[in-house]
Simulated scan of single mutants.
Amino acid sequence: MSSTSLLIVEDEPKIARLMADYLQSHGYDVTTLGHGNQVLPWLETHTPALALLDIMLPGTDGLTLCREIRARWPSIAIIMVTAKVEEVDRLLGLELGADDYICKPFSPREVVARVKAVMRRSQAAVNDSPPTPPAPLTLNEAGWQAVAQGQDLGLTAVEFQLLKVMMQAPGRIFSREQLMDHMYRDNRIVSERTVDSHIKKLRKKITEALPEQEIIRSVYGVGYKYQPEG
């Protein structure tokens, strides 16, 4: 990830170009996308430091993208851009994990100032963080392996995907419905008990390698989260 790389998701070409020109003139490396459905595939191979997301987009809307980005790429800072001024939209965007919001119409200088402020906060948070202890589990995505104490846990594809999703956002609670969306991309209809069954098997395999640690935790009535002890 480059500390100067930005993604602008805006379906109005003139606005996208205006924001991009101003940000590039301030030293940022900018990519623009005009359709919501382009964003997640692009992020599979690129990791910008910050994304500017318009709420009203063709295809996947900005709020949904905000939720997905925060779940799968938590290190990416997010600024929501909206023509809606209702407080509920602003709050909803922030509750989904956005770092800030900008209301249209705006001046390009405001965009640059907001981007700089969010980037400073993000960098400060990284610098102030204490050293991270070694993770009890590591993932080898190329080989679809989860390793603990040098031992391959022998996960199925679904178990690996479940663990990967939760590990990308430690401490975040995922509902069963959210986990099902990640488990089955073909939108098949499955019971929430299916998630419980996979989680049970995943926990058993983790416990066999790490008997003294609780890695996957249940939150009664809500769902599950990845939160190693310590």
Rank of each mutant, 00 (worst) to 15 (best):
42 W>T: 03
61 D>R: 08
54 D>P: 08
72 R>L: 11
69 I>N: 02
49 A>P: 01
56 M>Q: 11
73 W>E: 05
67 R>V: 02
42 W>Q: 00
48 P>A: 13
52 L>S: 04
59 G>D: 13
56 M>T: 10
42 W>P: 07
59 G>F: 13
48 P>I: 14
69 I>D: 00
73 W>V: 08
51 A>R: 01
39 V>H: 01
67 R>Q: 15
71 A>D: 14
49 A>M: 09
52 L>Q: 04
39 V>T: 05
68 E>C: 09
64 T>P: 00
68 E>L: 14
41 P>E: 11
72 R>V: 07
40 L>E: 04
42 W>N: 04
48 P>R: 13
65 L>I: 00
58 P>D: 10
47 T>Y: 06
61 D>S: 00
45 T>M: 09
55 I>K: 06
61 D>K: 00
50 L>E: 12
70 R>T: 15
49 A>E: 14
53 L>N: 03
44 E>H: 08
61 D>P: 00
74 P>D: 13
68 E>R: 14
53 L>Y: 02
74 P>H: 11
70 R>L: 14
60 T>H: 03
50 L>V: 11
52 L>C: 09
41 P>R: 09
69 I>V: 12
65 L>H: 07
54 D>R: 04
55 I>F: 00
41 P>L: 08
55 I>A: 09
52 L>N: 01
64 T>A: 03
54 D>H: 06
69 I>C: 04
44 E>R: 12
57 L>M: 12
45 T>C: 07
71 A>W: 01
57 L>N: 00
74 P>Q: 12
73 W>L: 09
43 L>E: 07
44 E>S: 12
47 T>L: 13
44 E>F: 08
45 T>I: 11
73 W>P: 04
73 W>H: 12
52 L>I: 02
42 W>A: 03
50 L>F: 11
69 I>W: 04
